[in-house]
Amino acid sequence: MGAVFDAGRVREAVREYALSLPEAREEFPWGGSVAKVNKKVFVFLGPDEDEDRLRFTLKLTDQDVHADALAAPGAEPAGYGLGKSGWVTVPIREGIPPVEVLCEWIEDSYRTIAPKRLAARLDACRPQLPS
């Protein structure tokens, strides 16, 4: 029998990984959580109260990675016109890729938003991907 999917655990693993990246910090605008680097959001984590609506939104500029993210169950271009710039919203639900892949997407978004000097730091001391 397979393990029961735990959306809250997945959200927390993604959040922890995002905040482990160089100079990342968490803020709470608009009633939800975001991870920022250099005053810019690289992942919207949203509110965590309603486990049935857990999701995250990130910017993916690599076409293959962007296409993979959009192929996740329920994923769609982000609202408010952000989808036109490569932002994708991925619901945290059964059938999405493993946490390791989600964290790779978080890292791609971070690299897109972070200054080059911080991306270089990431190359020098890559955080451990959760399992």
Rank of each mutant, 00 (worst) to 15 (best):
L54S: 08
R53T: 12
E51I: 06
L19W: 08
E94R: 02
D123G: 07
K59V: 07
E49H: 14
E100N: 11
Q128W: 11
R126M: 12
V14A: 09
A120E: 08
V4S: 15
A18F: 12
P115F: 06
L21M: 03
P73I: 03
H66I: 05
V14W: 06
L21Y: 02
V43W: 09
V88T: 06
R117A: 12
G2W: 07
S109I: 04
F56Y: 12
I106Q: 03
V99C: 10
I92L: 11
V65I: 15
V88F: 02
P47S: 10
V41P: 05
A18C: 03
R121V: 09
C103Y: 04
D52Q: 09
Y80S: 03
L54V: 13
S109W: 11
I106V: 14
L45P: 01
L122Q: 07
K84W: 11
L54F: 14
F28A: 13
I92H: 13
V4K: 08
G74W: 01
C125V: 08
E107G: 04
C125L: 14
T61L: 15
L60K: 11
F5P: 00
E16D: 12
V101L: 06
S20N: 04
W105H: 05
V90E: 01
D6M: 10
E49R: 13
D6N: 13
D52K: 09
F56K: 04
W87N: 06
E100Q: 15
P127A: 02
L118I: 10
K59W: 03
L118E: 09
